[in-house]
Amino acid sequence: MTKAKIMKVLMYIVLTIVSLISVFPLYWMLISATNKSVDVSRGALLPGTALIDNWKSLLSQSPVGTAMINSFKYAIILTILALVICSLAGYGFEIYHDKGKDAVMSILLLGMMVPFVATMIPLFRMFSSAKLLNTTIAVIMPTISTPFLIMMFRQSARSFPHDIIEAARIDGLNEIQIFFRMFIPTMKSTYAAAMTITFMNAWNNYLWPKVILQKEETFTMPMLVANLTEGYVTDYGVLMLAVLLCSLPTVIIFFLLQKSFAEGITGAVK
């Protein structure tokens, strides 16, 4: 065998091993959700028959339905608002840019360096004195507008041809119509990428909801899953079923939007 061939075989071996390691914990979670806790501990690696028992047991000990609905509610509202507000801003910063707006943008970019943990305490005090603990507004407000999303949309607006804008103006469309009818349909892949990122972050966010939500009926899925580990005895089957339910929405979104996600990131890195 030539040296190049050995390299190639080696490459396939490395990629296969890394892929298996990447997928295994998720496979194990899936399998464990269908097995009894004892069997999970014994190292079960094949689907079991305890899925329905685990499901009943999970429902009896925690309000999964409510937490699912809550998580969807927070994530969907947040994603819609974030996409509209940040893309408007990104478009505004790029299409109408001048010295003043460029300066504002560079100040906003500094916001990327502000760690959330540093703003968490003042935000908590702010929302609690406004009597907004346990509300949807409090959960979503801090992360609707992010410098990252604005930058992403500004970057994609850069590739939006000015001729289209001019032509649309001549056709009598006003500026907001140009944005909704011309820009949004052209930038589908950026929106898909932004949607994937925002929805995943919103769904997975744990620290802030944990701080701001104190009533069980407002809890999110990650909070519910984390609370399942608080007890002394862990039922692995039930726990992994909860983890599975918590991961399913983001995994599905990821598979649906994977292609446009990669395209959108490519646009942002350019």
Binding site: I85, C86, L88, A89, Y91, G92, F93, I95, Y96, H97, D98, K101, V104, L108, G111, V114, A118, T119, I121, P122, L123, R125, M126, M141, P142, I144, S145, T146, P147, I150, E175, I176, F179
Partner: peptide, 27 residues
């Protein structure tokens, strides 16, 4: 057009100011 631009970016900018910069000062 200039004013439209500002109108487009104001909501996002204000939110970052109130939800990120202001709390940072308070911290």
């Amino acid at each position: 057009h200039n004013l439209t631009g500002w109108a487009f970016l104001t909501p996002a900018t204000l939110m970052i100011a109130v939800m990120s910069f202001w709390p940072m000062i308070q911290a």
